[in-house]
Simulated scan of single mutants.
Amino acid sequence: MKPSTTPTTIPAAAFISATAMTSNLKSSATPNPVAIVVDDLDATKQRIKAAGIETFDHANDDPGHRFYFRDGDDIEFEVVSYA
């Protein structure tokens, strides 16, 4: 079977429990957030809040608008949209 060459969009929620991807962040004294770029920032924020996860904002720096949240392992995620 030949692998698909069609691009796949991964939903932001897939990154919430990405333990393998973020496990090394815990060892850093001041880690940067894991960044996720989305097309619809408001819809993504609503889905994350609906899952019971608290979001917080920093100043909107150009370019883009963003918000942040922490997962159960206290890893900070930055969700940003350039749309």
Rank of each mutant, 00 (worst) to 15 (best):
K2I: 03
P3H: 10
T5E: 02
T5H: 12
T5P: 01
P7F: 14
T8Q: 14
I10G: 04
I10P: 01
I10V: 13
I10R: 14
P11C: 01
A12Y: 10
A12C: 11
A13W: 08
A13H: 11
A14H: 10
A14W: 05
F15A: 08
S17Q: 15
S17C: 08
A18F: 07
A20H: 15
M21K: 10
M21F: 04
N24A: 09
L25T: 14
K26V: 15
K26N: 11
K26C: 06
S27Q: 08
S28E: 13
A29D: 08
A29W: 00
A29V: 15
T30V: 14
N32I: 06
P33G: 00
P33M: 00
A35I: 11
A35Y: 15
A35N: 14
I36H: 07
I36D: 07
I36Y: 09
V37Q: 08
V38I: 01
V38K: 01
V38A: 01
D42N: 13
D42S: 12
D42I: 06
T44C: 09
T44E: 13
Q46R: 13
Q46C: 03
R47H: 10
R47Y: 04
I48Y: 01
A51R: 09
A51H: 04
E54V: 11
E54L: 05
F56V: 00
D57F: 06
D57I: 03
A59K: 10
N60A: 02
N60V: 08
D61E: 14
D62T: 12
P63H: 09
P63A: 10
G64Q: 05
G64S: 05
F67R: 01
F67H: 02
F67D: 00
Y68S: 01
Y68E: 01
F69M: 04
F69H: 05
R70N: 14
D71A: 03
D71G: 04
G72Q: 09
D73H: 10
I75R: 08
I75N: 15
F77V: 05
F77E: 12
F77L: 15
V79T: 00
V79W: 08
V80S: 05
Y82R: 03
Y82A: 01
Y82D: 03
Y82V: 01
A83V: 05
A83D: 14
